[in-house]
Design a binder for these strands. Sequence first.
DNA 1: CATATACTAGATAGAGCGCTCTAGTAAAGA
DNA 2: TCTTTACTAGAGCGCTCTATCTAGTATATG
Lengths: 191, 191
Amino acid sequence: MGNTKERILDTTAEMFRRYGYTGTGLKQIVAQAGAPFGSLYHFFPRGKEQLGEEVIRRSGLMYQQLFETIVAAAPDIVTGVQDLFEGAAELLRQTDYADACPIATVALEVASTNEPLRQATADVFASWIEAGTTLFTRAGLPDPAAREVAITLITSLEGAFVLSRATRTTEPIEVAGRTTVEALRTALASA
Amino acid sequence: MGNTKERILDTTAEMFRRYGYTGTGLKQIVAQAGAPFGSLYHFFPRGKEQLGEEVIRRSGLMYQQLFETIVAAAPDIVTGVQDLFEGAAELLRQTDYADACPIATVALEVASTNEPLRQATADVFASWIEAGTTLFTRAGLPDPAAREVAITLITSLEGAFVLSRATRTTEPIEVAGRTTVEALRTALASA
DNA sequence: CATATACTAGATAGAGCGCTCTAGTAAAGA
DNA sequence: TCTTTACTAGAGCGCTCTATCTAGTATATG
């Protein structure tokens, strides 16, 4: 069964969100996942770096699907973006401002220290941008504008996570949501 | 002379930008600063945490003054904000996408693990927001709108740093600059 | 039944961590 | 001159880090 491996991946993703890459120890991971230490190097022979890379790519994909699900469930794209920011604010509140994007923390840590992991975070952001661009294109925006709004959404969300987690307030994320929605509305109006 | 202490603070700030808080070792700091290890605990008796806190508050103040200087040198507030984003993009390019905001990296790392440091990052962000609000109020925005634009600026900039450092592109920061300027223009127009 | 493969289990190595400790030097004030 | 204070200097402690290593168990296949 792939049960142990999945448990290690899920636990690591959760710990990355709270403690970052360098702040998360392998022994803490196996302890919290209830997995033997040997299994870690069985499933991830290249050690922490391989585990980190798989967690980054996996989490990136999960969040992308979450975003697409939220937008698909909304009556229109503007409401979808609104729901996304409101959901993020709610999640932060519920988890005592701990559980936000696991990519950003690791991305900043590894950007200048670990090229394979930096590449993984870059790939995740690139695919988020593409996914967003596709969605906004489908909503009627021309190609360059769609990409700009997608980038605006992601940078606003990530930056808001930083401020909200630090200040323990949802104000930054609420403001970021309004700004992003406004940018989207403006772009749609002139399309 | 306060020379050694300053050198330790400056070196630490630089290393925090690149390696983060947990990723920066005290021995690396004194080695790079050319300072004896004993001096570190002479100037910072409470160790790494005290050093970290002073670096956060000091860097926060420096960046705030930098922002105010840039805006003061510009012919108007819109140009000032534009210059700020362009300067940030230029700095990233020149430093191989290493030197960005030292607060964000540390903020995400310590938000759920170290309360005194989390508080220090929160204080920095709060004072940035206040400084921005003051500037935008002076430019003619009513109070709630001024604060919203200030928060938008900071979240956009921080989020753009994350994406730019990860992808090694200035595109996110350019887009964030345009979006922020647009938000500011809209707010000014309806003021 | 035999054997290969997948996985569990954890002791241990070697390096590095934050921090403490003792000792020594430089310069200023009594 | 003597003493105090500020600072330099770095060895070493206890601990944790990632990673390796050996050994054992379960399961499936010949």
